[in-house]
Amino acid sequence: MKEFEKYLFGWSLIKDVGYRRLSTILSHFKDPKVAWFEFGKEGTYIKGFGKKLTEKIKQAINKIDIEKEINNVRKKGIEIITLYSSGYPELLKKISSPPIVLYVLGRLPTGNYISIVGTRRPSSYGIFMAEKISRELVEYGGIVVSGMARGIDAHSHLSAVKNDGYTIAVLGTGVDVVYPREAKRLYKEIIDRGAVISEYPLGTLPIRENFPKRNRIIAGLSLGTLVVEAPLKSGALITAKFAIDEGREVFALPGRIDSNFSSGTNKLIKEGAKLVESAKDIVEEFPYINWERVSK
């Protein structure tokens, strides 16, 4: 790992420093290594960083042994990809707040990413359609991205795996933490047919606030996002909003107007999301792309 990337990784371990704060720090110091050793010293005041925050970050820097942390990750067979690595996904790099670092367990496949998201408590119709469209996307050579949550996410991943396709799970935990617990088998199958990835350090447990943040990565990786079933208050709609904000395509599966399962997706369609009945409705929105199966 290059020195520049090594210290980017170090900065990513500090909870109070995200993409925007790091951008401010780098605009001041120009180099993450210089920033690491000079941050908070007398005469290095940075606008927007008060005394309390500066001291908190300085204390965090003093506690981190970057080499030790890198070795710990690598011993577990996990790859570290920084924002400046050649392997960092191009579409993700373009979002307004890309993760500084991605932890990758498995391998990121090459190809066209489409995310499929939805409720954790789907109907039988939602399960059937998630599996059907995931299978069809795989047949077109698409790569299915989701969040490995119960319900629509899990069925989308599983269908991709069963049909010899590739899939990526974006976690709201560290990549070494399986959540939900019953997803252990699926977790292993995803690693065999793609990757589980996260921006969160190893050992990060499932904290509620992490999941909406990771949804921007699901949307950011993908050409477009399909919402299969979702009530009006749903994490899947947060993912759709991220996709809209980043100028990506949003697709939605229609459902009964009296069903809570479909209230969110029907609303998306009314607001301009493309109504989807099959994967063909998705791939035809990208006529400039060669939709063929590709090797991992």
Rank of each mutant, 00 (worst) to 15 (best):
K33Y: 03
T110W: 03
S12C: 03
K267F: 04
A240N: 04
K267V: 00
P98M: 06
K63Q: 14
K15M: 01
I152W: 02
N260G: 15
G77Y: 00
T204F: 05
I80V: 13
G142T: 12
E55C: 00
E284K: 14
P109C: 10
E42S: 07
Y187P: 01
I80Y: 08
R216T: 10
I127C: 04
E277C: 04
Y103R: 03
G224R: 09
E90V: 10
P212L: 07
E249G: 06
T167L: 12
E3N: 14
N72D: 13
S27Q: 13
L221Q: 11
M129V: 15
I207M: 14
I218H: 10
A273I: 00
D258E: 10
L137P: 00
H157Y: 14
V17T: 05
I257F: 10
K162E: 14
K188G: 07
K51M: 08
S146C: 01
A130N: 09
I78W: 13
G126H: 00
G147T: 04
A169F: 04
I269F: 08
S123W: 03
E55Y: 02
S278T: 15
K58R: 14
I64P: 02
T54S: 12
P212I: 13
V104R: 06
G43N: 12
K75I: 07
F261Y: 15
V228F: 10
A160E: 04
I114K: 11
L171E: 08
K241I: 02
I191W: 12
A236Q: 10
V104S: 06
